[in-house]
Simulated assay, not measured.
Amino acid sequence: MPDNAAWKIGLLFSTSGVTSIIERSQLNGALLAIDQINSRGGVLGRKLEAISYDPGSIVPRYGELAEKLILEDKVSVIFGCYMSSSRKEVLPVVERRNALFFYPTLYEGFEYSPNVIYGGACPSQNSVPLANYLMGNYGHRIFFVGSNYIYPHESNRVMRNVLRQGGGEVVGERYFDLQARESDFRNVVEEIMEARPDAIFSTVVGQACIEFYRAYHAAGGDGRTCPIASLTTNEGEIAAIGAEASVGHITAAPYFRSVNSPANRRFLKAYGDKFGSTSDVTSCCEATYSQVHLFAKALEETGEMDTDNLREALLGATFDAPQGQIKIDPDNNHTYLQSRIAIVDEQGEFVVDLKVRRALKPDPYLVFPAIHDWSFRTDKVAASGSRNA
């Protein structure tokens, strides 16, 4: 390979299909980071070159295209996937070929692979804080609605256990196809109205998420009295749902576009300059952006695309991300992340109501799922009058 040859990396995000509303923003986050790195001369004088494929939100395609990237395109580092089912397709491929896979999405936990760097929140960083917040502010009776695949089922299993630990109760649980439309949710919305829960925990994703929120609003549901609380609903989906149907609903995530910090302002300006708008910036977009920068730092240290050497350089690595400083945990390949809970205001913007004081260590196996401990490590943003989230 010539000394000035580009470093090739693979991008595996859908720009079509039901999860494209999220994955397109993840792709943009990666492309922005690559542009920034290349504008500074690349890594050790060599540019990053992205080879990108669109799996079309079709789960088996992620594994097939990961194989293509490794065998045909000679790529050994891949960034990709939103749904856990698609991650599960890529996982055996990168393990068999000893490639390095960056997964920039929250997930259900209970997994470890030496070939994966997990960049999204695991349950200790979002499910536990959200359960504590809902029971402390709304009540103990929660209704579950989810999409019918791995992540919602496992996430609900975790959330049910955490709620029980705090004296909570699941009063209903329903799952829907990823292609579900607004009319498909009418019956469950009627059930919710009859059950009168204190809050709804939603793991409905993609376009179906938008359809569910609209169905709830159309039936008279009001987030200010009985909110839909989620780990996945983000700025892009809220924009599609509309402010009137979104107000009062809640999301727990490491990052929101409204975070007021110099790093986030620089990120949003650069993103807006490149893509013309920041309306689709999400926590998964921010995670992808940060993971590409972390990879570039490790590559600069190793000077080679060897998976084992890159992994060694990544473990313990830090980055001043738009959300705040993050760090890859050498114990489990997951990431220390900020943790925030935000409520949608009348303009359709997330306003952070509660945040941790420092990045939370990832605990993917919930070895220490102490729900009540979380409240002692938080700041109530609204109480101080601060909008610096």
Results as ranks from 00 to 15, higher is better:
159 M>V: 13
188 V>P: 00
196 R>F: 09
124 S>I: 04
27 L>F: 08
329 D>T: 02
63 G>R: 01
313 A>Q: 02
190 E>S: 10
343 I>H: 06
356 V>D: 02
304 E>V: 03
162 V>E: 00
187 N>L: 08
183 S>T: 11
69 L>F: 05
145 V>F: 08
193 M>I: 11
13 F>H: 11
94 V>M: 06
82 Y>G: 02
61 R>I: 09
117 I>E: 01
117 I>N: 01
89 E>M: 10
249 H>L: 05
104 P>S: 03
85 S>A: 15
100 L>N: 06
143 F>N: 01
213 Y>A: 07
326 I>S: 00
316 G>P: 02
224 R>C: 14
328 I>L: 11
383 A>R: 07
129 P>V: 04
92 P>Y: 11
357 R>V: 10
368 F>Q: 10
44 L>S: 07
333 N>F: 12
144 F>N: 00
373 D>A: 10
260 N>S: 13
173 E>F: 09
299 L>A: 12
112 Y>M: 05
149 Y>V: 03
218 A>Q: 11
37 I>T: 11
162 V>I: 14
274 K>W: 14
217 H>S: 15
77 V>P: 00
253 A>W: 05
125 Q>N: 05
379 D>A: 07
14 S>K: 06
160 R>E: 15
97 R>V: 04
223 G>F: 01
150 I>W: 04
175 Y>I: 04
24 R>Q: 13
345 D>S: 07
103 Y>D: 00
77 V>C: 06
241 I>R: 01
266 R>V: 12
149 Y>S: 08
133 Y>T: 02
316 G>I: 07
